[in-house]
Design a protein around this nucleic acid. Structure first.
Lengths: 258, 258
DNA sequence: ACGACTAACATAGA
DNA sequence: CTCTATGTTAGTCG
């Protein structure tokens, strides 16, 4: 559920809380979606410190002072929480216990959270915040026939955009979510690249200002289009809700169909 | 709010009152949750008789002499009432007016009542009274990771059980409502199948004896566990009240956690 | 090969 | 009380 802007704030919150604290143990409470045995994971974390936390697409990357690093993907319903060690947090997948300073909880009602020790980062797509007009155009050329909304949602192409922000971006760029990539002219690709950056950066800044410190959930109430509570866009057009690319999509007639 | 046992008695009461009486009109007082236009509904009922009333899960099915049949789901707060035609019954959704013999009212303060003309009955799950140990086991196998209370409440799996009776059944079977389906051994599945039948049949028999004729509401005062008035179970254990599977849940330490 | 679509998953929130 | 939203993956269909 959380997308790039939410996850960016989670990372900033996590840095405040867990950086440079000694880990005394990693305890899995459910059989995890983990690429190595959980006992190995535990021994790689024990007595180590997290020295850096970053985000790549929808994944959060924790770097240890050993040089190892592990990624956490929250999937649909995952989140973080902080509490004293031993506190009962519902749907806990993993706890990292720190010496004298409580614990970090990774929670997920669905149990889908994915954790990878030393993931192959070369495979990762370009992050939403790093998309350039040139990258967008060359990706368009490779995916002529795909729907633009499906394109933005494809984590192999751009990392971090989910259903909500794909609608925000397409509205900002005035492109209909029903458009086919191949039909979009070069100057509109420029505009889209600009909209991706603008929408995401604005959201990050809004969240940093108003929701600093969050570790889970998603803030959607300030969105312009992908928002069940609003009936018209900021420019006064009625919001249309429709299933596009198998996703609930919000858009308006302002957006041009290519 | 009414569950399988209450609804079973409603059906028995309704049969006494409306069977084989000629309908002169069906009047909707609120925009209904109806799968066809209300004018069509009205013309399908006019001059017809209800020749059979049955219950399937939480729905009540009225069969007409035309071969058509419609279902009524009372949702959270719906109910029936009988009065002379034209009587003002609060929160009336629908009245069926009978020739010379008054009217049947479907009421609902929340307005959520769902009415379906010729519903597809093939989609309906096994009714709570028809659950076998074999059916339960095969459903368990498909839903390994789900919580047992959520399982019993899932109308796609078993029809008719709501929040109150799920607690009664789990207490009777001595299974903790926090259990995960996958952890419950085969012999306990047998016990649960038996408890489902026993608890529901006993409730129906109690209601038939003591509350025959009811058309709305719910009788909860005789329940063993799901009952705010009691402090200890019949076997003397203190009743614990807790939010489980997003529902207010009553249980005791007698119940084993799997 | 490519793209579109579907099902599966468990719960909170509407 | 029921229905839906939600991300990914694996699978089907054209």
């Amino acid at each position: 559920m959380p997308e790039l802007p939410d996850l960016t704030i989670f990372v900033e919150s996590l840095r405040e809380i867990v950086l440079n604290r000694e880990i005394v143990g990693a305890v899995f409470h459910k059989k995890p979606r983990l690429n190595i045995p959980s006992s190995t994971f535990n021994s790689m974390l024990k007595d180590r410190k997290i020295i850096e936390i970053t985000r790549i697409g929808k994944e959060i990357l924790f770097s240890l002072d050993s040089g190892d690093r592990f990624s956490v993907h929250l999937m649909l319903s995952g989140g973080f929480a902080v509490a004293r060690e031993g506190k009962e947090i519902p749907f806990t997948i993993l706890t990292l216990n720190f010496r004298d300073t409580g614990s970090l909880f990774v929670t997920d009602p669905k149990g889908w959270v994915k954790i990878n020790m030393n993931p192959d980062l070369d495979e990762r797509a370009v992050d939403g915040l790093d998309v350039t007009s040139e990258y967008l155009q060359s990706s368009f050329d490779k995916k002529q026939r795909i729907n633009i909304k499906a394109f933005l949602l494809d984590q192999q192409i751009i990392g971090g955009i989910g259903n909500a922000y794909s609608d925000e971006i397409l509205w900002h760029a005035k492109i209909s979510p029903k458009s086919i990539v191949g039909g979009i002219p070069a100057e509109v690709v420029d505009r889209l690249a600009h909209s991706i950056k603008t929408v995401l950066i604005n959201a990050v800044e809004y969240l940093r200002k108003n929701h600093s410190g969050i570790l889970s959930g998603e803030v959607r109430s300030f969105l312009s289009i992908h928002n069940p509570k609003i009936k018209t866009s900021p420019t006064g057009y009625p919001v249309i809700v429709e299933q596009i690319a198998s996703k609930k999509t919000y858009y308006t007639e302002e957006q041009i169909l290519y």
